[in-house]
Design a protein around this nucleic acid. Structure first.
Lengths: 233, 233
DNA sequence: CAGTGGTCTAGACCACGGT
DNA sequence: CCGTGGTCTAGACCACTGT
């Protein structure tokens, strides 16, 4: 019963996926172990291992030593998004990228930001507000806090010319970060800056990045109404 | 100059990441090839390959045959989200999961849905509206269209008892899908069902799944105000 | 304890793509 | 062309964990 589907790990992945979708191996069932599959496909166990590892990374199967490999019952699948670099995102749509600094100063951050960045109460951080433009139209509003103790060089940069983000990615590679996505209504200031009505539903992204155990920056991006991010499953 | 950081691929990954963050290998630079690194770390080339492949998957380095491996200049990093299974998501917060079917019927879908699912004009699809509850409070509103030609069994299911999603994941494993995230304002109907004010900004997720070249279902999930999804970078 | 996945090795050949 | 990453092999040992 040699299938001889081919001996590349991708071919094996395809065949395994086919069997799962065809319900040869229904949800919850145990699939043959690596050695048996290797024998069936006529390849090395390493190759089967690679194929199954890639499938497991998508959440469709679950693997445990001794217990074997099982088809996930409720496949809580994983999706991968590219975190957009704004300039690239805008230019890839054929639009001209623009950046406009709105304000800049040393302020005491609001409690939510202060807690997220774990800075002492009363500490002052560099606070920026800026717009990213596509063909001159507001595309994203950026509200950013930067700890100047962690990234001292930022104070010497002319942030009207170079975006803080560009400077940071080039000079302060982070070691850890978190990202969250949510929706919020446009307040009066955002509505004016983004050119939308007050109360409009905005898609927002909040990022917090660290170097070791020190927070570098907290940024909230608010997209103009209608923005979506998409991915394949 | 043997580093002897250890010979596991994870140790090598850690060391390579350290060098990138330490700017030993600044953005845009070429790092040594696999063979050289293997010699330096005193391990097989396969092991180095594995470590670099894992890093490349995060977008921090870019690899091309002959050109070698380069530290990404604008690390358009990738983030991975677990697509939540609603029941699991709610129960993992310690809340009781509830499901309430609001309406069900065969309707002609709106143009956007029809185009996304590539069904003929005028075709009727199964249309569901339901709420997912956490401790009895509305958590997510689900608006779903299902093509009964592709998933005929769905018509025999009592959708008041079993959620359409549960039936589909168990009986109609998809081969392809797309997912998009966006924000929208609550209309009157959603506001009433979710118990929020009309116009509230809602975080929404739209999924479209296929078996081969036929669309199974289109679903839009609208979360009650305040919902976020988060991930590590 | 024993079965299973996880990993490492040394070597080989191949595919891509810059020069 | 030929250097580089991509993959495969056969075998080995190890780590975890269910029984």
């Amino acid at each position: 019963m040699r299938s001889e589907t081919g001996n590349s790990w991708q071919a094996i992945r395809t065949e395994v996926l086919r069997r799962i979708h065809a319900r040869d191996w229904p949800p919850g069932s145990l699939i043959p172990n690596e050695a048996d599959l290797a024998a069936e496909f006529g390849c090395a166990r390493t190759t089967v291992s690679r194929a199954l590892r890639e499938i497991a990374a998508t959440g469709l199967i679950e693997r445990r030593r001794k217990a074997g490999t099982r088809v996930a019952v409720a496949p809580s699948r994983r999706a991968t998004f590219d975190i957009p670099v704004l300039r690239t995102e805008i230019e890839s749509r054929g639009a001209r990228y623009g950046y406009a600094l709105i304000s800049q100063g040393l302020d005491v951050p609001p409690p939510a930001v202060r807690a997220g960045m774990a800075v002492p109460e009363g500490a002052r951080l560099l606070h920026l507000s800026a717009l990213h433009l596509a063909d001159g139209a507001p595309h994203v509003h950026e509200d950013r806090w930067i700890d100047p103790d962690v990234a001292p060089g930022i104070l010497t940069v002319d942030l009207g010319r170079e975006s803080a983000n560009a400077w940071l990615v080039a000079n302060m590679p982070y070691t850890d970060g978190s990202l969250s996505l949510f929706a919020r209504a446009a307040d009066a200031g955002l509505a004016e800056r983004l050119g939308c009505v007050e109360g409009a539903a905005l898609f927002c992204m909040e990022r917090l990045t660290w170097i070791g155990d020190r927070a570098i920056t907290h940024v909230q991006l608010s997209y103009a109404p209608g923005h979506r991010i998409a991915t394949q499953l």
